[in-house]
Design a protein around this nucleic acid. Structure first.
Length: 536
RNA sequence: GGCGCUAUCGUCUAGGGGUUAGGACGUGAGAUUCUCAAUCUUAAAACCCGGGUUCGAUUCCCGGUAGCGCUACCA
């Protein structure tokens, strides 16, 4: 048996969407599982909508997800890999033209001189009669004389495939046998007429078939919006006498309202998830699970490598799936825990730099030297300089940042939530803290007032630095002196210290604040916080 | 209008002619902690409807309904 060859064939008309990313992933997994080849082909025949900049983005997104391909366009400047190229449809126009000539010469295709108006009228009639919309076959058997006459007269024509009268059936790995009655399909257009904007450009259903056949694709794995196109494509394979591949149509990904997943449901493009601080392994795992289940019915966490060992198209679900952000978040938290802390630190630093450019960067890590980041830093007002710090200070800041992450990472679904979640350290805002309803409720209690005034008098009486040890000592003294303990003691104290009534333990937060304050990050000290809050 | 695809907890799914219909996310409760997060324990939660086949259907068949897709000289 020959090894399978599959392809992912996106059109570069926008960002890579999670639905397409899943299609790419399943193609890749199928090929890797069976030791076959995975090919990337760019479908840019829609010249009006295609943009080359999207091709680069596409390639970047696929690589970020962890996918690679054996044939197709390479990274910038690299030539295409593979020998059945070119891998951009816009570079294959002569190939299609040659095949059209062949079909015409063999009488398997013919010129159709019908005008759009005539066809529209036919269609209207069919709908009125509750009949399938099919082409009447008006130009199917024109005499040579009539054809020549039209040609000489310069009448524009499209090229249509002459198909048989049998019903068309194909096998789908996900859905079984799918068939279409003969009377519902008619001679499809292969090449657009000169009267259309894209004169002489072959249509999608035609080029995709020619490409798949010439590239030796054995399994066509794609979205289920192509099911209805498949019979036309099968007819084209048959006209050329090419072997018909296996098909596998993947169901649509829907939003929570069961509508097709779109921007209004939240993030949908791979690059957006990346920016939000999702890990590629989490997204790949989630997409792998969306429409596919492991054989044991239980396993859920897979690396790409693990998935590539167990994936099979037979276990792909045919029904549409709703994209569940909660489950993605769970997987992301899972991988955040497993990931190398240094890697997470770099990613987290980028998020802080984006959201808190007043404080970050803490150090000039390699991550911040990307072109994208440079543009961002330079665009800030005032522009941010990547300062050259002493190695000692950099190491101290790195260690401090690591302990910050240890404290706040368990609280986030994705990395871009980190700046907001760690506001206890970076965002000490007395007014906001007082006004926040739950805080206000805590502070309104008499015992809370007592705690704050006790704290205030101790700060006044103490002239030096308020170390974590001293602060904890104070809390104990206040407890002993007033009998206030538990949350009545801790909550007001925490508000005064961090602006939040709940959060990590004092044992962890206090050193973080004090150490951070000494690293030149503009973080107020324990003393400054209390003074500001109680108005000393 | 025509044609096609789909239908198990709220969601992703396992299963399959007789099962306590399994797992996960989410949700509720409890443990832990001053609190939040994390963690652990635990609970509630599903076979779209109607016929048929069968001793027996959630499972097989037919129909309905609903959702989605295609219905272009878009991709």
């Amino acid at each position: 048996m020959t090894l399978p060859r599959v392809r992912f064939a996106p059109s570069p008309t926008g960002m890579l969407h999670v639905g397409n990313a899943r299609t790419a992933l399943y193609n890749w997994l199928f090929a890797r599982r069976l030791g076959g080849q995975f090919i990337l082909r760019i479908e840019d025949t829609d010249l009006e909508r295609s943009e080359t900049r999207y091709e680069g983005q596409l390639i970047e997104d696929l690589r970020w997800l962890g996918l690679d391909w054996d044939e197709g366009p390479g990274v910038l400047g690299e030539p295409d890999k593979g020998v059945v190229g070119p891998y951009r449809q816009s570079e294959r126009l002569d190939i299609y033209a040659r095949h059209t000539e062949q079909l015409l010469a063999e009488g398997k295709a013919y010129r159709c001189f019908c005008t759009p108006e005539e066809l529209e009228a036919e269609r209207a009639l069919a709908i009125a009669d509750h009949l399938p919309q099919v082409y009447s076959g008006h130009c199917r058997n024109l005499s040579h004389a009539a054809i020549d006459h039209n040609l000489v007269a310069g009448k524009p024509f499209a090229v249509r495939l002459r198909i048989g009268t049998d019903s068309l059936r194909f096998h789908d790995i996900v859905r079984g046998s799918v068939d279409f009655p003969a009377e519902t399909i008619s001679d499809p257009i292969l090449v657009r007429s000169a009267s259309s904007v894209s004169a002489g450009v072959p249509v999608y259903n035609y080029v995709v078939t020619v490409d798949d056949a010439l590239m030796g694709i054995t399994h066509v794995i794609r979205g289920d919006d192509h099911i209805s196109n498949t019979p036309k494509q099968v007819a084209i394979y048959q006209a050329f006498g090419w072997p018909v591949p296996e098909f596998a149509h993947l169901s649509t990904i829907l939003g929570s309202d069961r509508e097709r997943l779109s921007k209004r449901h939240g993030a949908t493009s791979i690059s957006t998830f990346r920016q939000m601080g999702y890990l590629p392994e989490a997204l790949a795992n989630y997409l792998g699970l969306l429409g596919w289940g492991a054989e044991d019915g239980k396993s859920e966490t897979f690396t790409l490598e693990q998935l590539a060992k167990v994936f099979s198209l037979e276990r792909v679900t045919p029904s549409p799936a709703i994209f569940d952000f909660d489950k993605l978040n769970w997987l992301n938290r899972h991988y955040l825990k497993l990931a190398d802390p240094e890697r997470i630190a770099k990613l987290a630093e980028r998020q802080f730099t984006r959201h808190r450019p007043d404080i970050f960067p803490l150090w000039a890590s390699d991550e911040l030297h990307t072109a994208e980041m440079q543009v961002f830093l330079a665009s800030q007002d005032p522009p941010i300089q990547l300062n050259s710090l002493s190695k000692e200070l950099i190491d101290q800041r790195k260690a401090w940042f690591a302990s910050l992450l240890a404290l706040f990472l368990p609280k986030v679904d994705h990395l871009d939530q980190l700046p907001a979640k760690s506001a206890a350290i970076f965002g000490f805002d007395v007014e906001a803290a007082r006004v926040e309803p739950e805080n206000a409720a805590v502070l309104a209690v008499d015992s809370a007032r007592t705690v704050l005034s006790e704290l205030a008098s101790r700060v006044r009486a103490h002239s030096g630095h308020v170390t974590p040890e001293i602060f904890k000592l104070w809390l104990n003294e206040i407890k002993d002196a007033t009998g206030i303990k538990g949350k009545e003691l801790f909550h007001p104290a925490r508000i005064a210290l961090t602006g939040f009534h709940s959060g990590p333990e004092f044992e962890k937060v206090l050193p973080l604040i004090e150490d951070g304050a000494t690293l030149g990050l503009g973080i107020p000290t324990v003393r400054e916080r209390i003074e500001r809050f109680v108005g000393v």
